[in-house]
Design a protein around this nucleic acid. Structure first.
Length: 385
RNA sequence: AAUAGCGAGUCAUAGCGA
């Protein structure tokens, strides 16, 4: 059964879902009863697609086939709910798991804690942390990490530092990721000195700043309008022998775009491949937004076509940039056309998209249409901010 | 009973704003 499970996992990870299903029934035909392990990769596939219903269906299969889901199975279903930003639903599944007598572990607790952190509900997050301690589970660097990151994202650096000290007292080592999260926290608050201090501290501890560390700092420097220092930081990253990745280049491109230097942005864009870094959807979106901001809509649209041709799917970011670009360049009809085209592309306009469109309509004195859209977004369950 | 197989944390892109 182990061997079959390993194969089933490999099949599914290649994206061959139907074949995985067939494989599982074939293994049953040969007299090997699949267990939770055999099915979990299938479950993970649904989860990563954000398909809660699909994941739930696998659970229905479990009860039909008499398979007992293990912690990992539950973790995957819980993750699907986390992905939807529904920590309470996730928690319900978790409680259900406990009732069924499946023992929780550090991983599932960490995942659940992260779900609450992402919604900014640190109170629940810490409650779960205490609960796992009561159960005799030992938080590891992942667990402390989600707590620290949650606090950093809320800008609560003092509290984050306390958890940082706490984990050390408990004998859990600080790793690069932990430092990176704190550095990002300081950068986002504009406290670059704090960020640099931590970078030095991590080096002193024998840790090596990685591409995450550098990119975090570079982004921080860009936001602090210190573009020259940002460039120097990029160079010193290269000096350490680190290979810049797609995110690093996208950051640089964005920096150029924000400064209106599309020529430089384009140069970096065409050179990045030489470093083995291929542009991705975010890279395209960044450039498209840059051209939109400059009013070079032909270029922007050209890039949208190019990204599509390369197999990337224009997303809500792409459309919002273009809608805003057309709106503010006197082409409100083009903007509206794009907006109306979104549903057909499987895209759901969000708050930002609606604001951009409404703003554009108002600028063009099409107030009635703007109000109609405002009503529409409320009907769709969006909450104007 | 032991052992092996699955799951969790950090960086980049969009609108408005006295």
């Amino acid at each position: 059964v182990h061997s079959f499970s390993i194969l089933s996992d490999a099949l599914c990870k290649e994206g061959k879902v139907e074949e995985t299903r067939r494989f599982l029934s074939e293994m049953r035909g040969r007299g090997f009863e699949p267990d939770a392990y055999s099915y979990n990769s299938l479950l993970e596939w649904h989860t990563n697609k954000g398909d809660v219903n699909g994941a739930s269906r696998v659970f229905e299969d479990f009860s039909r086939e008499g398979i007992i889901p293990n912690v990992t199975s539950y973790t995957l279903l819980i993750k699907a709910f986390c992905h939807l930003g529904k920590p309470d639903e996730a928690d319900k599944v978790f409680r259900d798991m406990l009732e069924k007598g499946v023992a929780p572990d550090v991983v599932v607790y960490t995942l659940l804690i992260r779900a609450y952190c992402r919604t900014g509900d640190m109170k629940q997050a810490f409650k779960l942390h205490d609960e796992m301690l009561l159960k005799g589970l030992v938080p590891n660097s992942f667990t402390y990490g989600v707590l620290i990151d949650g606090l950093c994202k809320l800008g609560q650096m003092e509290a984050a530092k306390m958890v940082f000290g706490d984990m050390q007292n408990k004998g859990v080592d600080h790793d690069e990721v932990i430092y990176n999260m704190l550095i990002d926290g300081y950068c986002k608050k504009g406290m670059m000195d704090g960020a640099f201090q931590l970078q030095q501290a991590m080096i002193k501890r024998g840790l090596v700043p990685d591409v995450f560390t550098y990119n975090t700092i570079i982004t921080g420097l860009c936001r602090a309008e210190k573009k020259d220092e940002a460039k120097l930081m990029f160079d010193s990253m290269l000096d350490t022998g680190l290979l810049p990745n797609t995110v690093n280049f996208t950051t640089l491109i964005d920096m150029c775009c924000k400064g209106g230097d599309m020529e430089e942005a384009g140069k970096i864009f065409s050179n990045m491949l030489q470093y083995g870094a291929a542009p991705n959807d975010v890279t395209y979106n960044t450039l498209i937004n840059g051209y939109c901001k400059k009013g070079q809509m032909e270029e922007a649209v050209k890039l949208k076509d190019e990204m599509t041709a390369k197999g990337f799917v224009p997303d809500v970011f792409t459309y919002t940039s273009l809608i805003h670009g057309f709106s503010t360049n006197g082409k409100i009809d083009e903007a509206r056309e794009l907006f109306d085209d979104m549903p057909a592309r499987g895209l759901v306009p969000n708050n930002v998209t609606y604001t951009a469109m409404i703003f554009g309509l108002c600028m063009h004195n099409r107030v009635q249409e703007a109000f109609n859209l405002y009503d529409e977004m409320i009907i769709r369950g969006l909450v104007p901010d």
